[in-house]
Amino acid sequence: SGNANTETLPSGWEQRKDPHGRTYYVDHNTRTTTWERPQPLPPGWERR
Rank of each mutant, 00 (worst) to 15 (best):
G2Y: 11
W35N: 04
R47K: 15
H20V: 10
L41W: 12
P42Y: 06
T30P: 00
T6V: 12
S11E: 08
P42E: 13
W35Q: 04
R48G: 15
E36M: 12
L9C: 05
T32Q: 12
P43D: 14
P40I: 11
G12L: 02
P43N: 13
N29Q: 11
H20E: 14
P42T: 10
T23Y: 09
R22I: 11
T32V: 09
R47Q: 15
Y25E: 03
N5G: 05
P19G: 12
G21K: 04
T23G: 02
E46Q: 12
A4E: 10
N3G: 05
D18Y: 00
G44H: 14
L41Y: 05
N3S: 07
Q39S: 13
P10F: 01
S11D: 11
P10Y: 01
E7T: 10
P10C: 05
T23E: 04
R31C: 10
K17W: 09
G21A: 01
S11T: 11
W13I: 03
L9I: 05
P43T: 09
S1M: 07
G44T: 11
R37D: 00
Y25L: 02
R22L: 08
Y25P: 07
E14H: 00
E14K: 04
T33Q: 05
P19T: 11
S11Y: 10
N3V: 07
L9T: 05
R22H: 10
N5H: 06
N3L: 08
T30C: 04
E36T: 12
E46V: 08
W35G: 05
Y24G: 04
K17E: 13
T30H: 10
E7F: 08
Y24C: 03
R31S: 09
K17R: 10
W45E: 15
P43H: 10
P10E: 02
N5Q: 02
D27T: 01
P40R: 10
H20P: 01
D27S: 02
T8E: 14
T6F: 08
E36R: 12
D27A: 02
Q15P: 06
R47L: 11
R37L: 07
E7D: 09
E14A: 06
G44K: 10
R37V: 08
R22Y: 05
A4Y: 09
R37I: 05
G12S: 03
D27V: 00
S11M: 08
N29V: 09
N5F: 06
E36N: 13
Y24H: 01
E46T: 08
G12F: 02
Q39G: 12
N3C: 09
P42V: 08
W35R: 07
P19K: 13
E7L: 08
P40M: 13
P10G: 09
R31I: 00
P38D: 00
L41H: 15
Y24S: 02
E7N: 09
E46F: 05
T34D: 00
L9K: 05
P19C: 11
R37F: 07
T8I: 10
S11P: 11
T34C: 06
G44W: 06
Y25S: 03
K17F: 06
P10D: 03
T8R: 13
S1V: 13
W35L: 03
G21C: 02
R48M: 09
P43V: 12
G21V: 00
N5P: 08
N5W: 07
E14D: 06
G12D: 06
G2M: 10
L41P: 14
P10W: 00
G2I: 11
K17C: 10
T8H: 14
R31G: 08
T32I: 10
W35M: 05
E14I: 02
R37A: 09
T30K: 05
P42N: 10
Q15E: 14
H28P: 01
P42I: 09
R48F: 00
W45G: 15
G44F: 08
A4S: 14
Q39P: 09
H20C: 07
T8G: 13
P10S: 04
N29P: 01
N3Y: 10
R16A: 08
Y25F: 13
N5R: 10
L9W: 06
Y25K: 03
T8F: 07
G44Y: 05
T30V: 02
P43C: 14
S1P: 00
N5T: 12
T30D: 04
T33N: 01
R48N: 00
G44Q: 13
G12R: 05
G12H: 06
W13V: 06
R16M: 09
R48S: 15
P10M: 06
P10N: 00
E36I: 15
R16K: 12
H20G: 12
T30N: 08
Y25M: 03
Y24F: 13
R31Q: 14
T32M: 10
R22N: 13
T33F: 00
W13L: 03
P19A: 13
Q15N: 03
Y24N: 02
P19Y: 05
W35E: 06
T34Y: 04
A4M: 15
T8M: 14
T30F: 05
T32Y: 02
D18N: 04
W45F: 14
G21R: 02
T30S: 09
T6W: 07
R37Y: 04
R16V: 08
Q15L: 11
